[in-house]
Design a protein around this nucleic acid. Structure first.
Length: 353
DNA sequence: GAGCCGTGGAC
DNA sequence: TGTCCAAGGCT
């Protein structure tokens, strides 16, 4: 006999009170019950960074951002290039561009304070369904239904929802709405995410430790790992291109330029490379270099993206003068500070040995 | 709705 | 090595 939803929510909250993960941006359940509120700026910043990104990867980036820009006003006043460089390595760079735009909108249109409802938050750039509900519930106690990948997994198992995602998302959201308690919506959202991240994991869920095990329909059928059902994905194509690392003969400085604001690695620094994003094969020789030089082939690097795999042939040359007016010299000891995305860090490492 | 958009870790 | 995937949003 399944218990009513409120009881299930209480079981999960009680589990959270005992097992909440400690995060730099999080206020624990004890402090929340004592009436304290987390800093909305830190909740927002962490939620943006956590989009499709692991907690472990986010932690050092979050610490650097908060240290350098302690408030949303500080972030709004920063240069876009500084933010992009600080974000380098975290991926999905449109998040960094939207981060800056959002901070400026909060300052200019909301008096420097984040709006307190999910609906108003969702109007800001980079904040969608999930993030608006997460911020509203965690920072402002609005009972907005929070649905992320963890919660999709927990819910589809609990109710043995066999329709494939993302089509089944409205059904999942409906279930979450029914479960979310009015008095502790933020803690409940974080409890469900912690449950999905530590107990109800994709491959080998620890059902013996799960506070919802007795009410889990998938577990009663013994097919927990069959959920969530997801639509089949397409195979990822292979693409190739070439990258060109020019060093200045006088001091070894490296010639870099900035990629266009939109598209792959938009707005990030790079060593000049061919238009690999639009190319399937061919044109990987030194003859497609962006400028004339005595190019030497030094090898190739491979890099996997979400929707294609890339192999870049890497060339190096020493030159004397600036090859164009669109770029800059980066001193060898400053390359780590240039904000190179990981792909380009691999290219430069390959070229310079 | 489906494609675009990074990266690093687990298995 | 390959595959999956991790607190998604935008177009």
């Amino acid at each position: 006999m399944p218990l009513p939803p409120s009881s299930l929510s209480e079981e999960i909250l009680a589990w959270y009170d005992r097992n909440a993960r400690d995060m730099p941006w999080r206020l624990g359940p004890k402090a929340r019950r004592e009436g304290h509120r987390p800093d909305a700026y830190k909740i927002w910043l962490s939620e943006i960074m956590l989009q499709q990104t692991t907690v472990a990867a986010v932690k050092p980036f979050f610490a650097r951002f908060v240290n350098r820009w302690p408030t949303v006003g500080d972030l709004a006043n920063a240069e876009a290039s500084e933010i992009m460089a600080e974000w380098a390595g975290l991926g999905y760079y449109s998040r960094a561009r939207n981060l800056h735009v959002c901070a400026k909108e909060v300052v200019e249109n909301h008096g420097g304070a984040f709006p307190r409802t999910a609906a108003a938050l969702k109007a800001l750039p980079g904040i969608g369904d999930y993030t608006s509900a997460a911020i509203a519930s965690i920072a402002f106690d609005e009972a907005a239904p929070v649905v992320d990948g963890n919660i999709e997994r927990v819910i589809t198992r609990l109710y043995r929802i066999s329709a494939p995602l993302p089509g089944a998302k409205p059904h999942v959201k409906e279930k979450v709405t029914g479960l979310t308690p009015k008095d502790r919506p933020g803690d409940f959202a974080q409890a469900m995410m912690d449950l999905g991240a530590t107990i109800c994991v994709p491959r080998s869920p620890s059902c013996l430790l799960c506070p919802a095990a007795e009410q889990c329909e998938a577990r009663s059928h013994g097919d927990q790992t069959a959920y969530p059902v997801k639509a089949a994905k397409r195979p990822v194509p292979q693409r190739t291109g070439a990258a060109f690392v020019a060093t200045r003969s006088s001091d070894g400085a490296v010639w870099l330029r900035r990629r266009p604001a939109s598209g792959m690695l938009g707005g990030m620094a790079e060593a000049p490379s061919t238009a690999w994003s639009a190319r399937k094969d061919g044109e990987t020789g030194a003859d497609v270099a962006p400028f004339k030089a005595d190019w030497m082939h030094v090898g190739a690097i491979a890099h996997g993206f979400t929707h294609f795999k890339l192999t870049l042939e890497v060339y190096r040359a020493e030159i004397d003068a600036e090859p164009s007016n669109e770029g800059w010299w980066a001193a060898r000891h400053e390359i780590a500070d240039q904000g190179l995305p990981t792909l380009m860090r691999k290219v430069v490492d390959k070229a310079l040995g």
